[in-house]
Design a protein around this nucleic acid. Sequence first.
RNA 1: GGGUAGGUGCCCGAGUGGUUAAAGGGAACGGACUGUAAAUCCGUCAGCUUAGCUUACGAUGGUUCGAAUCCAUCCCUGCCCA
Length: 370
Amino acid sequence: MTAIRYELIKQCPETGARAGRIHTPHGTFDTPIFMPVGTQATVKTMSPEELKDMGAGIILSNTYHLFLRPGSELVKEAGGLHKFMNWDRAILTDSGGFQVFSLGDLRKITEDGVTFRSHIDGSKKFLSPEVATKVQMDLGADIIMAFDECVPYPADHEYAKQSTLRTTRWAKRCKDTLTREDQGLFGIVQGGMYKDLRTMSVNDLLELDFPGYAVGGLSVGEPKDMMYEILEHTVRQLPQTKPRYLMGVGTPDCLVEGVMHGIDMFDCVFPTRVARNGTAMTWKGRLVIKNAEYAHDFGPIDENCGCYACRNYSRAYIRHLVRVNEIFGLRLMTMHNLYFLQDFMRQMRQAILEDRFVEFRKKFLAGYVH
RNA sequence: GGGUAGGUGCCCGAGUGGUUAAAGGGAACGGACUGUAAAUCCGUCAGCUUAGCUUACGAUGGUUCGAAUCCAUCCCUGCCCA
C-alpha cells in the first residue's frame, strides 16, 4: 500500500499546469493547493476549525521545532500530532532541513548530520536523516520530508554539488529509516541555481522512487527570473504520476508561476507572518493595513473577499486593532490572508479544469502589483 | 506664606561650559518579510533654497570666544510644613 497517491485530473495543454487530487490517510485534497504553516503544531492564531472553514485540507508542521519543544516523544505519547493538535485532516512535516539553512551560524554540517545550537537555550542538538525520520515517525504526519540541506544563494558550483549529493545520500538514509506504512516520504530536489545539478539531483532521487518530490532551495534570495527558470527546468523532469511540491513559496505571483510550471503543492509562512506584521494580501497586491490612509476607511480589506474578516470588519477597525496590538487584529489578518490563498488556489484549479488557465494567469498578472 | 525638587524636541526622559539639532524609550510615519530564532526587523522623525543656514532645552536679561548647562529676575509644576 502506498500512503500517498496522486491523481491527475486535468492538465493545461499549453503550460502543463495540473489539476489533481492527493489521497492521504487523513483525507483527500484537491491540487494545486496551498498549505498553511503551523511550525509549532499550530497555525499561529488560528484554530483547526477556522482552518477547516476556509477550506484547508493539509497543513504543515516542523520537525526541528517540535523536536526541541515539546519533544517528539511527548507528541507520540499524546497519540501523534493529529490528535495532539486536534487536526484530523492531512499534515506534512518538514524535516528540519530548512533550519539547517536558516539557523546559519548556529549549526555545523557533517556527513553524519547536523549539530545545532538550540535557538532557545543554546544547548547542542543533533539532527540526522535517521533522527529526523524517527522524529517524523513519532509525529505521524501523512507526508514527511527527507532531511536535506537547503543550498544557500549564492553558492558556488562545487559547494552546491557536494551539498546536493549529500542531500541525496541523506534521502536514501531517510528512506531506509522509515518503517511506517501510513506515511509518505518525499524526496527534495536541490542543486542550487545550476541546471546540471538540478538534473543530477532529480535523476538520483528518481532512482530512490519516492511517492512525491519537492523542489527545494528556491526562493532563497535569487532573482525571480532565475527561480522560474530553474523551476521550469526541474519540474519538467519530474514524473507525471507523483505530486510535486515547491517548498517555501507563497506570494500570489510566484504561486501562479509555480502552478504554470506544474507544481501541485506549496507552503509558505508569508501569508501568516505578513498578516501579523500588518499586511493583507489581495488580488491587486499588498495592502498595508497599518498605513494612515486606511484610518477612516470603513470598507472591508477586499470587496470581493468572502472571508470572515472581510464580511464583518472594516479596514479602519482592523487597522486599529493591529496598531494597538490586539490579538484579534492579528487573527483577522491571518484569517484573511489564508482565506485569500485558499481562494486563489481554488480559482486557479477551476481555471485549469475549465481550460482557461492561461487567460486566468494573464488577467491576474495584469491586475497584480509587485 | 515658608521650605524643597524641578521645568529639555509630539510624550517620557538623559545630559551640568565647547566633540549637542541634543543619548535612550514611546508615539507617529514609511518600508521589509517566501520549507517561521519573526505579534519581528529596518528607516525617518525642527525647518529650509540641505557638503550650508535658520530656529530650538519655561521667559527675559546677563557672564563667556562659546550656554540646555553659570548668574539674576520673573512665570509655572510636584512634594513637605503652616
